[in-house]
Design a protein around this nucleic acid. Structure first.
Length: 124
DNA sequence: GCATTGACGAAGG
DNA sequence: CCCTTCGCCAATG
């Protein structure tokens, strides 16, 4: 079955605007909500879990819409593969993301999560 | 409707 | 080791 790639059962359509059906975006939201307090994950890990490892960018894009989701999506727990708070600029204030993480017991230095690999959590 | 832009990541130079 | 390019796919201009 090398000729066919049928692993695309999820998601072509999405759009947080208008369409409220299950979509790649919503799946991202759900996974993000699974991240335990005090832990973090990466865009790539979420994308990989959803079967679209190469679409890590879409995960980040989904996070853009996450602000409007209920229950809220802990977007602060999603960082890039280096443990860097690449999304902090998209929060209300440039420091909010770090502050939220620190409230959960996560130490952040130089926009990067300390002991990132130790607190890294991956969906299963 | 094409071109640019991403909260990414892996690969190449 | 640092920088650039490519892939991925939706949103925006």
């Amino acid at each position: 079955m090398a000729a066919s790639k049928n692993n695309k059962e999820k998601l072509p359509t999405l759009l947080p605007s208008g369409n409220r059906e299950y979509s790649f975006f919503e799946q991202v939201f759900e996974v993000a909500r699974q991240i335990p307090m005090g832990r973090v994950t990466t865009y790539g890990a979420i994308a990989e879990y959803l079967g679209a490892k190469k679409s890590a960018r879409m995960v980040g894009w989904a996070m853009n819409a996450a602000h409007d989701q209920t229950p809220p999506v802990p977007a602060q727990r999603v960082v890039n593969r280096n443990g860097m708070l690449s999304g902090k600029a998209h929060f209300s204030t440039p420091t909010l993301m770090q502050e939220l993480l620190e409230k959960e017991g996560i130490t952040v230095q130089n926009d990067t999560v300390v002991d990132f690999e130790k607190i890294l959590w991956k969906p299963e």
